[in-house]
């Protein structure tokens, strides 16, 4: 791992939904092994920014470069990119028609990343890692929110991604389940995974982030270490936001 290597470079990213400008001009760099946490009020464009990184949203303008390759709209390259960029959603989005094990094995087997046996082995290993070995045969509707989210993380990890995106992974959880999910994420961060996390968990940002970005109105208004952002925010909007949430 090389902390100077830029994994993702975003330059002048713009995104409109019709007349609504969600991202106005966003530029950022994410280096290998770095944990970047994005905070900001609702509607500031955080989620849209994240979704642009694995092309779930098509950018209106600007460029995104991952590992030196500029993202294009070729379907084939898009699918290849997504294999390497894991995504965890606010509402988990586990496949309801499959049990946990099949949720984990679907993509690796279907995309011929490995044999069925290897996929199963890896799936079981990932389940063990998130502490849900005994739920392998359960269906999503039989799991609690926290368990679902841990399975979702395990599912993304089964593709051996080198970047993980988290879109408000704890926002839909009951308070007592937030901890178990954050624990898995911290573990992942310690192992050196490159992570981009949109969250309202300021405690997590403070503890785990290498860098914090504050977004509002489709722009990154301020960025810095957690210390800089939480202790000495410069931008009045950042100060205002932090006063409200802390």
């Amino acid at each position: 791992m090389n902390p100077d290597k830029v994994k993702i470079r975003v330059e002048h990213l713009r995104k409109d939904f019709g007349k609504l400008e969600v991202l106005r001009d966003v530029s950022a760099e994410i280096r290998e092994g770095e944990v970047v946490v994005i905070i900001g009020p609702s509607g500031s464009g955080k989620s849209t920014f994240l979704r642009c990184l694995n092309q779930l949203e098509e950018a209106t303008g600007g460029t995104i470069t991952v590992d030196g390759v500029v993202l294009s709209d070729s379907q084939k390259e898009m699918n290849r990119l997504r294999e390497r960029v894991g995504m965890v959603f606010q509402h988990f989005n586990l496949f309801n028609n499959m049990n946990v094990l099949r949720n984990l094995m679907l993509a690796p087997v279907d995309l011929k990343k490995c044999s069925r046996e290897e996929a199963r082995e890896r799936a079981e290993k990932m389940l063990e890692r998130v502490g849900l070995t005994e739920k392998a045969r359960a269906y999503p509707r039989e799991l609690s929110g926290g368990q679902k989210q841990r399975v979702a993380i395990a599912r993304a990890l089964c593709m051996k991604p080198d970047i993980m995106l988290f879109d408000e992974p704890t926002s839909a959880l009951d308070p007592e389940m937030v901890g178990e999910v954050l624990e898995v994420m911290k573990e992942l961060a310690r192992e050196g995974m490159t992570m981009v996390v949109v969250t309202h968990e300021m405690g997590f940002a403070r503890e785990v982030a290498d860098r914090v970005l504050f977004m509002d109105g489709g722009l990154i208004l301020e960025e810095g270490t957690p210390e800089e952002i939480f202790r000495h925010p410069q931008n009045p909007r950042t100060q205002d936001f932090l006063n409200k949430v802390l």
């Binding site: 959603f89 679907l106 279907d110």
Partner: peptide, 20 residues
């Protein structure tokens, strides 16, 4: 979200449609 999750794992559109 079901389609998005499948796509985010790298499955092509038709495959996601068919399996998920």
């Amino acid at each position: 979200g079901q389609m998005e999750a499948a796509r985010s794992l790298g499955l092509p559109y038709w495959r996601s449609m068919q399996r998920v």
